[in-house]
Computed example of a mutant assay.
Amino acid sequence: MAHAPDASAAAPADALGEFELIARHFQRPAARAVLGVGDDCALLQPVAGQQWAVSTDMLVEGRHFLAGTDPRRLGHKALAVNLSDLAAMGAQPHAFLLALALPAADPAWLREFAAGLFALADEHGIELVGGDTTRGPLNLCLTVLGLVPAGAALRRDAARAGDELWVSGVPGEARLALGHLRGEWALEPAALEPVLARLERPTPRVALGLALRGIAHAAIDVSDGLLGDLGHVLRASGVGAEVLADALPRGRVLAEQPEARRRACQLAGGDDYELLFTAPAARRAQVLDAAAGCGVQVSRIGSMGGEPGLRLLDAAGRSIDTGFPSFDHFATP
């Protein structure tokens, strides 16, 4: 987690230096790595019969989270969104790297951020093995590494016609909270609290992803909107889908919203980090057993067909306009 000298203005005398910052807040004894934080590279031991699953996600203040977000929750979310990618592949978390740009080395902020980060890391048995720090606008970039038996990964290109379409949890709650924070609508405090937790402290469905290996065909995590992410699966697999909009699960807060708002949050809202996956109809009982074993709610929301394209239907079987835009970093304001 070393890096070249910073050419910017000197830091205040009472600020942490880069290497003290790393040692105090991010350096821990290596548990599984041959060599972890503190050298030019981490050293990891290859595992026979396993493939590495590797993913990187960046969180930028003002784009992925609001200024002033609680640092402990931010530490949790920074790792959670990356673990969600491993979950979508059915991979077991193994190690991660952190590249961190900070406007200032604030010890109190760093302490809380690291606490949230490592609490989730310890929960999933994943260790920090390296990265980088620098001065700049607040920006968090994590790379996660997981292990999956060769040939067992859940891939976007593996959906088949005749598969049933499932989703975990309650998609749309995070977008509902974000709309309140943006002033698009107002939620009462009792309604805001549970959905804000879904936005700021998402639950990566790692256990479910592992349990679905050998049962599900394809999977993706819902990060940019359910229909938009489903579109990636359809294109990669060369299949179509029929989605039952009113089969999507609704928590109490979503159920109280006007229909148009609820549908927009559930079908186009991002930041849910739930798993959207396909599995053969003959394995429905196995899907339900796998989810129950993980303590995760799953809902059957449609099916995959051989004809390309997406059909969105209401409870009466009537077609609904599919023009729900997903999040795009360069097209979305």
Results as ranks from 00 to 15, higher is better:
Leu234Gln: 12
Leu275Phe: 07
Asp272Leu: 06
Gly38His: 01
Gln50Gly: 01
Glu259Gln: 06
Leu140His: 06
Asp132Leu: 14
Leu227Met: 03
Val47Phe: 04
Ala78Asn: 07
Pro107Asn: 00
Ala268Glu: 07
Asp224Gln: 08
Leu208Lys: 09
Ala241His: 10
Leu21Ala: 15
Asp224Met: 11
Leu208Phe: 08
Pro325Met: 06
Glu188Ile: 04
Glu173Asn: 05
Leu44Lys: 08
Ser8Leu: 09
Ser84Arg: 08
Gly231Phe: 10
Ala159Val: 05
Gly238Glu: 07
Gly270Trp: 02
Leu208Tyr: 05
Leu208Trp: 05
Ile220Met: 05
Ala245Gly: 13
Asp39Met: 10
Val298Asn: 06
Ala161Ser: 15
Ala316His: 14
Pro149Ile: 02
Ala78Leu: 10
Ala88Gln: 04
Val298Trp: 02
Asn82Tyr: 00
Ala121Gly: 03
Gly36Arg: 04
Leu16Glu: 11
Leu79Val: 03
Gly116His: 05
Asp6Thr: 04
Ile301Leu: 06
Thr143Phe: 00
Pro103Gly: 01
Gly209Trp: 01
Leu234Tyr: 09
Gln266Ala: 12
Arg155Val: 00
Ile215Gly: 13
Val144Leu: 07
Pro280His: 01
Ala95Trp: 05
Glu200Met: 13
Gly251Ala: 10
Phe19Asp: 15
Ala315Leu: 06
Leu138Met: 14
Pro258Tyr: 04
Asp6His: 14
Ala291Tyr: 09
Ala4Thr: 15
Glu18Gly: 10
Arg235Gln: 07
Val233Phe: 06
Val34His: 10
Ala290Phe: 10
Val195Trp: 01
Phe118Pro: 11
Glu20Phe: 02
Arg28Leu: 11
Arg198Gln: 14
Gly238Leu: 12
Leu128Asn: 04
Arg300Leu: 14
Gly309Arg: 09
Ala30Asp: 12
Ser84Val: 01
Asp271Met: 04
Leu178Gln: 13
Pro107Lys: 01
Ala88Val: 00
Ile220Gly: 09
Gly293Tyr: 07
Gln50His: 02
Ala268Lys: 09
Ala99Asn: 15
Val239Lys: 02
Leu210Trp: 08
Val129Leu: 05
Thr134Arg: 15
Leu208Val: 10
Arg300Cys: 15
Gly317Glu: 03
Arg156Val: 08
His94Glu: 13
Phe277Leu: 04
His329Ala: 14
Val54Thr: 10
Phe324Ala: 12
Gly214Leu: 06
Arg318Pro: 00
Leu187Val: 08
His180Gly: 10
Asp85His: 11
Thr69His: 02
Leu142Tyr: 05
Glu256His: 00
Glu193Trp: 03
Gly209Lys: 00
Asp229Phe: 05
Gly169Phe: 06
Pro258Lys: 03
Pro71Lys: 03
Ala80Phe: 06
Ala158Asp: 11
Ala174Glu: 12
Ala161Thr: 08
